[in-house]
Design a binder for these strands. Structure first.
Lengths: 235, 235
DNA sequence: AATCATTTGTTCGTATGTATC
DNA sequence: AGATACATACGAACAAATGAT
């Protein structure tokens, strides 16, 4: 390859791989790169852009470009009974759960199919942000038929764990029936909330949850930061 | 936002979302955009680059930029017994399996751990490309202890299905014990083989496979195109 | 087979704006 | 307020891939 910006990017990929730059280190500024490589600034910017696209550095205006810290992904056990809070506690991580939004409304067409609802059925839809400390981890949209969780809004103040809420107030025992995972790109809004670039990979997990094996009581769609999660399935 | 390239990119995201441009349609060339938006070429290129990063278009030198066709992801059943070929056949898709590479060598440290091997143990490592028709779908690296599949090279000519080979020649009945999924970015080489951009998301699936519940007989690491796959887990 | 127009890719060169400290 | 560093934009030239003549 005799394309300058790729050669320069490759140089840094090598250097970072070999430990010449540690996580969090700043790579040389554009002005310094200009001296080091004798290339035009536009070329250097392309090189850094490439490094950012491929996840090696993150760039911040006015500060510089920093080697992305390869956080250890958190193993998430994907099983029929899994609750975020309990997994985190097991690992000694302080979980933070925030209710971004909730609404009570008529079920959309897709939700009717997913939850096997009749037409004009009412659902509660919650949007939940899960974090560890101050690092956002995932956003989950969860939809439940309103008749299963009547007067849900009364229990949403001080929200901290969905399954604890369901168990305490409605004696519901959620059980995951099926999950569908896929790798994708985030919606712009999700990228912002999760504090990732809009081309950073996310893991989408759609889940179908029953109560006592009869009703489809919950449909959820999680969008999880790819750099912070590994989901584990045991057969 | 009063940043030109973002405004222009957003215009096309809107237009594509509203069906003004269909999948596969060419968006205006840079010269045409120059007339339409009255912006510098560098700005227009940034706009198109943004569209490509976020998966709306794919650009080809000498031809133009085309609205990415949102292929329907192929559902992949992730269970204790799953073979690629049979899943594809069930769906009426013609699967194509190619052995990219194989080698017999000493197990690496990680592989010793993953397969619970002793030191200096020999393994076979295969690299398999799976496609549907002419569209590449996934690359899988699979590692097996050599003592379980002696003289494996003798059976690799005309390779078409790993599990058929294992069953026929070694009476092995693979059973998946555990899988770990995660969303990530591809290695440059994988991106090239899979015919995707090097910032396109991929689904990584690590699998641990046993034979009759005793031996860890296979460790595999699949890298699957995010745009073409949904993996489904039933509990 | 060779040439040419079209289209994207790369680079050079300059200027100004904006965030950070 | 000033220095540093990244962000955006203007302006121009040539390279490389593509498809048609």
């Amino acid at each position: 390859m005799d394309v300058q910006h790729i050669e320069i990017a490759d140089y840094f990929i090598q250097a970072i791989s070999q430990g010449l730059y540690q996580e969090g280190d700043r790579i040389p500024s554009e002005a310094e790169l200009q001296v080091l490589f004798g290339a035009r600034r536009s070329v250097l910017r392309r090189a850094v852009a490439r490094l950012e696209e491929t996840g090696w550095v993150t760039t911040r205006q006015g500060k510089g470009s920093f080697v992305t810290s390869r956080k250890v992904p958190i193993d998430y056990e994907l099983s029929s009974r899994t609750a975020f809070s309990s997994i985190m506690k097991e690992k000694g991580i302080v979980p933070r759960v925030a209710l971004l939004h909730w609404e009570k409304r008529a079920a959309k067409q897709r939700e009717q199919d997913q939850l096997a609802l009749g037409i004009d059925e009412t659902v509660y839809a919650l949007e939940i942000l899960r974090s560890t400390g101050d690092v956002p981890l995932s956003i989950t949209t969860t939809v439940m038929p309103a008749y299963l969780v009547p007067d849900l809004e009364a229990h949403l103040t001080g929200f901290h764990s969905l399954y604890a809420l369901l168990s305490r107030n409605y004696q519901l025992q959620p059980r995951r029936l099926k999950s569908i995972v896929r790798a994708a790109l985030p919606e712009p809004r999700d990228a912002q909330i999760l504090n990732i670039a809009d081309h950073a990979p996310i893991l989408q997990i759609e889940s179908f949850v029953t109560h006592r094996g009869v009703n489809l009581m919950e449909y959820s769609m999680s969008r999880i930061r790819g750099d912070l999660n590994k989901s584990c399935v045991t057969f």
